[in-house]
Design a protein around this nucleic acid. Structure first.
Lengths: 200, 200, 200, 200
DNA sequence: AATGAATGAGGGTTCATTCAT
DNA sequence: GATGAATGAACCCTCATTCAT
């Protein structure tokens, strides 16, 4: 009675399709067609379409499924850790996670992935909160707009995570440079400080 | 040396096709099909294909044509300016240039663009030379591998340039953070220094 | 003769499927897919197919189910009423019935519906009998072949019933024109009459 | 110089596709798929799609191409002949023309055929004008709304033309019945006449 | 040499039917 | 026996490339 008909297999097949899509999403050269995903999952093409209602919802589910734990982890870090440590840890985990899942396919351009877009928004917001918190704690420079900085950090981190092939130590170097670059400027206080680095 | 009359038209058409492809490459929502490029160029589709031998060579020419002056400028800066100033200036110009050409289309995934790839290699190499030079001059930290750092800077800069929509001040903030993050670590010398920033 | 308990459910489901198919058949814009019919019936798609052995038999049953009472009514009228009154009444009821069930879906093209085809044959035959009877009674013109006239009346009536949207009074006008057009030609008898209306 | 490139063949192929579509449209059992049309025309499927921009525009062109000369002829008759003769002649020609082109496929349900719809509107309007003119001339009964009558005549004529197989003399019988049914009711004048035929 | 047109290959999606539960 | 899910076949459409003009 606990297994309502074939529902169990359907769930399994849905999961198989999702995993196949996720795997192909991570393979830079893959075709990322419905048929390719179906073949990878050992299913018929129509099955994966039916399971998700189309190609875009499937890819949205795959990509957002990769992104969601990262965002949740970031939100947890924001609540539990000191802001700057939260930021540092989050960056490390973000890059590690994305790299572990290789990269994200290039074939996603022009697609409408609402869940993924929403998650990216949450991610940027969390990073902004981390930066604001760190600024309030005096451990991050105050001459940069937190909103701008969060976009900057997010985009750059995403690019670093996507880099393939990635040279040894790339992620650590990125984190080092960003965190050091975000430190308060020595020898001066918050107000009236001349910008130490500007583009001419 | 007088080229036959037809040759002149061929060169002109090649240029028209290239300009059209470049323009469409920069429009995020564009179709980027051969026919769309041909229509933009005021040519026939077959002419566009003929002029470059296919769609990929055409796009390769378009993208590398955008990238090449940037690389040449970087190489010039490397020869003419102090390394750190060269790096800062180059980053500013790279981002400004890319942003001015909006972004690069999303439809380039999975394509084989050898000339573009080669240019990216040259770019990374130039950046690495800048960094090495700056390190030798003592104005950049020595605890990071220049090869890794150049990839880091290049990838991040590219991502920043592609960001759309870009918040006001994003490019400046990026340059500020990166340049400050690359500065020598105060209060210590090259050898035996404990890493000021590490990932836990 | 006591049917097993399951048989009762099967009969009920068959009826549910039939009613759903009938309802959707009458909705001009409906999808008329097996799944849509099943959903409307509150059944599974496989059940609907099983109950009738396919989609076409189901639709045949639905359409012929709509048509059958009309035919039976026509046969009853033929037996019970004066031929011309039978014809007039039948036309009115046919159109009213079909219109009440809106129209018949457009998606029936190319389908093989033997029961429906047979009913249409019966219908034409009944109409022919009505016309022949009325002719014998001297209330319908004799210069037209009853077989041809029955097809003519049937086809036209069907078209009128299907008209959507139907202007107010369409059915009445149709019956008026047809019945008046079928009246005996005044001032002449059966033989040797010059055709009062011919196509040049 | 008079033949601009391959344009001549393109026109020919477009015509071939149109003729194939028209022919298949007239075959009751035909598939009416793009591929079937293309095979009939001796062309590739993509060619016929490209030539018309899709399946619906192609079918619209085919059906409206059949209908247009009929409408033009009706409009000419309206201008040139006495209204009742115009109506009679038009009905004969309409049915003859449509029958000559067999019937129109059943697979057109649910399609959006704007040109065809517009032509049908023009047709109904012309018929209405014929009826109004004949009424004013005193040769058609005045107890029926011309707008309703035109719909009635058009729908019925269309159904007669579509009838397949059509018994010998069907068209003539139809015209005879309709024209006689539309005659002024004898022994009374326009006003206050009791309806000679009404539905109870 | 340039080109509009043709097309084969491939993509996403729908649907009547079949099958394991 | 009933059912949700699976699927092969078929459909319409797009596009890079080829070809006759």
């Amino acid at each position: 009675m606990s297994t309502p008909g074939r529902r169990a297999d359907a769930v399994r097949n849905r999961q198989l399709a999702l995993e196949a899509a996720t795997a192909l999403t991570a393979e830079p050269g893959a075709s990322l067609t419905v048929e390719a995903i179906a073949k990878r999952a050992g299913l018929g093409a129509a099955t994966v379409v039916r399971a998700f209602g189309g190609k875009e919802p499937l890819l949205d589910a795959a990509v957002s499924g990769l992104l969601e734990p990262v965002v949740r982890r970031a939100e947890a870090l924001l609540r539990e850790a000191a802001p700057d440590q939260a930021l540092r840890t989050f960056l490390a985990e973000l890059i590690a996670f994305q790299s572990a899942h290789h990269a994200i396919s290039d074939h996603l351009g022009g697609l409408d992935l609402p869940a993924t877009t929403a998650l990216r928004g949450r991610l940027v917001q969390v990073v902004e909160d981390m930066i604001t918190g760190a600024r309030d704690a005096g451990v991050i420079r105050t001459d940069l707009d937190p909103a701008v900085t969060s976009v900057l950090v997010g985009q750059a981190a995403y690019a670093i995570a996507r880099t393939n092939p990635a040279p040894e130590g790339l992620a650590d170097a990125f984190i080092t440079v960003v965190m050091d670059g975000l430190r308060p400027v020595k020898g001066q206080d918050d107000s009236g400080r001349p910008a130490p680095s500007t583009v001419t």
